[in-house]
Amino acid sequence: MGLAKRIIPCLDVDAGRVVKGVKFLEIRDAGDPVNVARGYNEAGADEITFLDITASSDNRDTILHVVEEVASQVFIPLTVGGGIREVADVRRLLNAGADKVGINTAAVKRPELVREATDKVGSQCIVVALDAKSVSGPDEPPRWEIFTHGGRQGTGIDAIEWAVKMAEYGAGELLLTSMDRDGTKIGFDLALTRAITDAVEIPVIASGGVGNLQHLSDGVLKGGADAVLAASIFHFGEYTIAEAKAHMASQSIEVRC
């Protein structure tokens, strides 16, 4: 009877619409973030993450309206990431109704941003997103490096050292994505997940690679993750949130029913 491991569907939002298509039951307009969020809430999701992938700065404020709309109708935690550059961006999103804000590239550029933001709004609102990629050779001990710009740009920063540093800077949670696994559907990088969860005291969300329900369980049981994030297995109706929870519960993982 402790804390439930969380299941978090993640949605990409471009110019105010959910993209990549969402196809679960009774959602007529898959592009409307409110409908999608409401559907996931009713399906039992523990939290929802929106990633703002809007490239054009003209559309930047659109995400604020999306967050306002969703937050006024869906009453579970909402995390929003993408395009955060300064503390003012964090505040705007929180004021619009986000509960947590994900910071990625901006933290790599200027780590103090994380400290400034947590000082202002509290650690529990700040999620640092880590995009990590394996950089060790076949016979070397495993090593992962932080990448930015959707995994295209290496930084030379060791992923574990970075996770520890971000926790020290006040991050309330880490969203860990394996760039090697993202989109592959072959499961989380469990060695990476375990290395990070062992290194920090703060909660870690595992992301990247989920293709079936066992992958979700493995993220918790083998990777030590506190929450598991997935996109396509839920969006395309391959599995429901309820099925995911039932599967995890069958392996003695505590979930919220």
Binding site: L3, Q124, E201, I202, D226
Partner: peptide, 8 residues
């Protein structure tokens, strides 16, 4: 973990 974050 601390923060205590999630559903209890």
């Amino acid at each position: 973990k601390v923060p205590h974050m999630g559903w209890s």
